[in-house]
Nucleic acid binder design. Structure first.
Lengths: 128, 128
DNA sequence: TATATTTACTTGACAGCTCAATCAAATTAA
DNA sequence: TTAATTTGATTGAGCTGTCAAGTAAATATA
């Protein structure tokens, strides 16, 4: 209940901050997940799982990202059904910049919490 | 980051549970807020604030709710611009049933937390 | 008192997602 | 090997919300 409102607020603040890099929060999450993936590459289904979208949502999200060359497609030699996704060089650059903005926005959001409270909150959320 | 995923999950579970009463999570929140409001009545703007929507979103949300008579409109004698919203009798009944479902869904979501952890989480969220 | 500004709400256009249906490739079962 | 099933991804239709512009009533300013 309260959680929803807090979350709505957090999303807005982060989206707003990230917009200066021309990307949405979801796009940011996709890029971040790609960057920490083994081999820097992911299937669309894994991506969906990791950002909380459906496969369909991922398709729709990725299309424009590919058009402006934030990401690249790659074939999977073993399985012709899968369409691998990879960060482009430009994508990595934008992600790097966005990460700083993201940190700032997150910190400002958490500013009312002391360091150990923040840790505690994260721990509790993890348990859910 | 993790918080977004947790929230997405929570929303889905609650929405899913509430769907058995024919209402969405947002509609539930509106009804709940109306029920605890002084005089059982609220302006659309207050409602928007309380559920984290824009005034526009509230207009669109309330239209069908009024059509199926979950809520009722009421004029404000002092100010002809405002459109007061009120729970109908049917609305109160549905809210009452929905509250039980909501509690169950919330509890099942929090099941991995001990009682004092739940309290702690709520407290931390409030601070944000 | 007439005009400008603000406030409460609504509306058109559109973003961002889901679901259900679909297709093609891979896997399993006969 | 052929047929049935499962899996990864895309597409059309539709839902839920936003933003920007608009309307009408209330309030402030000249």
């Amino acid at each position: 209940m309260q959680m929803s409102l807090v979350q709505t607020n957090l999303n807005k603040r982060i989206s707003n901050a990230l917009s200066m890099h021309g990307i949405s929060f979801t796009e940011f999450q996709v890029m971040l997940n790609l960057s920490i993936a083994e081999k820097q590459t992911m299937r669309r289904i894994e991506l969906a799982e990791s950002v909380g979208l459906t496969a369909s949502g991922v398709t729709r999200l990725l299309a424009p990202m590919e058009k402006i060359k934030l990401i690249e497609k790659e074939k999977n030699a073993r399985d012709a059904r899968v369409s691998l996704v990879k960060l482009s060089k430009a994508g990595r650059k934008i992600l790097k910049d966005s990460l700083i903005t993201f940190e700032q926005a997150s910190n400002s959001f958490m500013q009312n919490l002391k360091e150990n409270e923040t840790q505690q909150l994260l721990k509790l959320i993890h348990k859910l």
